[in-house]
């Protein structure tokens, strides 16, 4: 369990992180969201012991990162931002070094390193010096370093930053594979990633936690949540908005204009008040009765990016 208690960091007069507390249990993948400069990396650096907190502390499996830093760090795997690795070393040399520092030796070390090279798809570059590798490989080398000792706590700062879509998918698959037996914190500003892997998301802005919930509930905060999106074939002389407003459970019908440049199709967004159990079906039947051609009809789940903007930059609105 990772327990973060009132972490605070001042850089001179600036408060980079302001009284952040949360708990991550085994099996949880916590997504750490926030605009650039919100304090994500600083928080992670404090949890991993790179920076000393100005106030507060974090307990890693019950061990205080400030007073028992060495023990706490033993059970953490950390992938820093931009995946720093030694350019002059070979992949094998670097991973051997990490294994030695983590206390493996002899055959045990050999097996560990070989296994991790397999797992992170590094076999073809094992003897190559790291500065000759592409960004994706470097990221994987650093990722390998973080999971080498099979740590119960994994902290990753933008693990998929700079990777191509295939590589992103690979990294996410690996994260999900490990999810059951670990507690993980992942920072990212790719919102689809949060939906894809995280069981919970914390949004921070200006050093404070502004939201802490599951990605699904966060989406529920969206203004679009549970609105119906209805595309109809345009019909001369029919005012769709007015006709639809006759339903008691429809609060507002907003015309969004022609759909994607197709003049013949009108897009309507319908905000519901107290909808029946199955508003889509009811709406569909109504349109059929009227003889309108429905091109598409679906219920919006809400968008994380909209919620993100709403929470982190409320003045700029939409």
């Amino acid at each position: 369990m990772i327990e973060v208690k009132g972490l605070t960091k001042y850089f001179g007069p600036v408060t980079a992180v302001n009284d952040i507390s949360f708990v991550v249990d085994k099996g949880e993948i916590l997504g750490f969201l926030g605009p650039n400069g919100a304090g994500k990396s600083t928080t992670m650096r404090m949890i991993t012991g790179y920076l000393t907190p100005s106030e507060g502390t974090a307990l890693i499996g019950g061990k205080d990162i400030v007073s028992r830093g060495l023990e706490a760090r033993q059970s953490i795997g950390y992938l820093p931002e931009n995946a720093p690795v030694y350019p002059d070393m070979t992949v094998l040399g670097f991973l051997n070094f990490c294994a030695e520092i983590r206390g493996f030796s002899g055959k045990d070390k050999h097996h560990r390193v070989e296994e991790i090279i397999e797992r992170c798809f590094l076999s073809e570059v094992r003897q190559q010096s790291i500065d000759t590798l592409s960004k994706g490989f470097k990221q994987r080398v650093c990722f390998a370093q973080a999971i080498l000792h099979d740590p119960p706590y994994l902290i990753m700062d933008e693990p998929t930053d700079g990777l191509d879509p295939n590589q992103k998918h690979e990294v996410r698959t690996m994260i999900l594979e490990m999810a059951k037996e670990k507690a993980m914190i992942i920072s990212t500003h790719i919102l689809e990633e949060v939906e894809a892997v995280c069981t919970r998301a914390i949004i921070i802005a200006e050093g404070r936690i502004v939201a802490d919930d599951t990605p699904k509930n966060l989406k529920g905060m969206s203004r679009l949540h549970n609105t119906l999106s209805l595309d109809l074939e345009a019909k001369e002389g029919v005012d769709f908005q007015k006709e639809l407003s006759t339903f008691s459970w429809i609060r507002e019908v907003e015309a969004l204009g022609a759909r994607g440049g197709d003049e013949a199709v009108l897009r309507l967004r319908i905000r519901t008040g107290n909808p029946p159990w199955d508003p889509e079906r009811e709406l569909w039947r109504f349109c059929c009765q009227k003889g309108w051609t429905v091109v598409s009809l679906f219920r919006e789940e809400g968008r994380l990016d909209e919620v993100f903007r709403m929470i982190t930059a409320p003045d700029r609105g939409n």
Binding site: R45, Y50, L70, R73, Y78, P80, P84, R102
Partner: peptide, 8 residues
């Protein structure tokens, strides 16, 4: 950052 977060 890597070095200082290792258990050394």
């Amino acid at each position: 950052e890597l070095l200082l977060t290792l258990p050394v």
